[in-house]
């Protein structure tokens, strides 16, 4: 039997160590009014006045946000669309329409991704692979979601009188984009761990934190194992977005494996809103980790508050069809290691 060869940049079971770490040379974030009123409000580049942004439907609003995030992240870097090799992007809606329609006028080669709320981490990973591999000089990673468009697809009409469960999470309205380049200044993407689908049989679509926690714990443990690192090698391990319940379950799952991350483990779904904003267990949505990463986290890295962070994007890969058919919720988590 022939020995199975391992690729040069692959580390351990499921990780990548970038040899020429791509730099995050510019970022842009655009969010809805509720996000703007939250604790990170000042960090976002654009805050919308209402949930429509001059459009007739929420789907069009979300597409417009995606287009603006892409155009602005290019302008911020003093570049033109023709300087960008690829856009890697996704959102929560069927056939990732917000992304497809938001990107259609940009004239940039495009990869559509779906990883639910883990999409930003997936896009950063894939983008870094393209840049490090020499297939691209500059790529954009972006993800978006919109509270109202997600509600009507996954749950109920917005004006319907329903009491939200205390386990449910509030979908963020926002789009965040990061421009990765082989040359330039900025935080570097040094490594990534690609998650496996983990399904522990959770069926409640109003409790995604519980569904995703095992995937998050699996990927964090695999990341530390593959790189031979300890949690102390990171100033911040930030999931996006487990919410309050998912976060505390993930801590316990890791403690059972003798991995203690509690003192540096946080969640973008708990950073973006104040609990007084009525968001139950926290925030969620592909836009949540995308806007928090593309604003607050990159700023903190640039300011030197953090030197190394691990962004763990977590996605609940369900659809209204699967939960109505009684299926459980498959979940995934991707980890991206970023250094200043």
């Amino acid at each position: 039997m022939q020995a199975v060869q391992t690729a040069a940049k692959k580390v351990g079971k499921q990780s990548i160590a970038f040899q020429n770490p791509p730099k995050i040379v510019s970022t842009f974030s655009i969010v809805g009014p509720k996000e703007g009123q939250g604790p990170l409000g000042k960090d976002f580049d654009t805050v919308l006045d209402d949930s429509y942004y001059g459009e007739k439907t929420w789907e069009k609003t979300e597409a417009k946000m995606v287009g603006e995030a892409v155009n602005n992240v290019i302008q911020r870097a003093n570049l033109k669309p023709e300087n960008i090799d690829y856009v890697l992007a996704g959102d929560l809606l069927d056939q990732i329409i917000s992304t497809n329609f938001g990107i259609r006028d940009t004239d940039i080669p495009f990869f559509g991704l779906y990883g639910a709320c883990s999409t930003m981490a997936e896009a950063l990973t894939m983008g870094a692979i393209l840049v490090d591999g020499g297939y691209a000089s500059r790529v954009i990673a972006t993800a978006s979601s919109h509270f109202d468009s997600a509600e009507r697809q996954y749950r109920y009409p917005v004006e319907l009188g329903v009491q939200r469960k205390p386990t449910s999470q509030w979908t963020v309205t926002g789009s965040g984009a990061a421009l990765l380049a082989a040359e330039g200044q900025g935080p570097r993407i040094v490594g990534a761990t690609v998650g496996k689908i983990v399904d522990m049989g959770v069926k409640d679509p109003n409790n995604m934190g519980t569904a995703m926690a095992p995937a998050a714990a699996d990927t964090i443990a695999a990341h530390l194992q593959d790189f031979g690192k300890s949690p102390r090698d990171y100033d911040l391990i930030v999931s996006g977005d487990l919410g309050e319940i998912g976060l505390s379950i993930t801590k316990e799952l890791l403690q059972k494996q003798k991995i203690e991350i509690s003192d540096r483990f946080y969640d973008t779904g708990l950073m973006i809103f104040d609990r007084a904003q009525g968001v139950q267990a926290g925030a969620s949505g592909a836009g949540c980790s995308a806007v928090v990463f593309s604003s607050h986290l990159v700023k903190e890295l640039q300011a030197g508050k953090y030197k190394r962070i691990l962004l763990v994007g977590t996605g609940a890969l369900l659809s209204p069809v699967t939960y109505q058919q009684g299926e459980s919720i498959p979940s995934i988590a991707h980890a991206v290691s970023v250094e200043m």
Binding site: P166, M200, G201, N207, T210, A213, S248
Partner: peptide, 22 residues
């Protein structure tokens, strides 16, 4: 068996709905 064990572990972390208030 794994899923049942997880269900038990996760149960402790679930918030109680404010039943009386509701």
């Amino acid at each position: 068996q794994e899923q049942d064990a997880y269900k038990k572990l996760a149960q402790k972390h679930q918030p109680k709905p404010p039943l009386l208030k509701n």
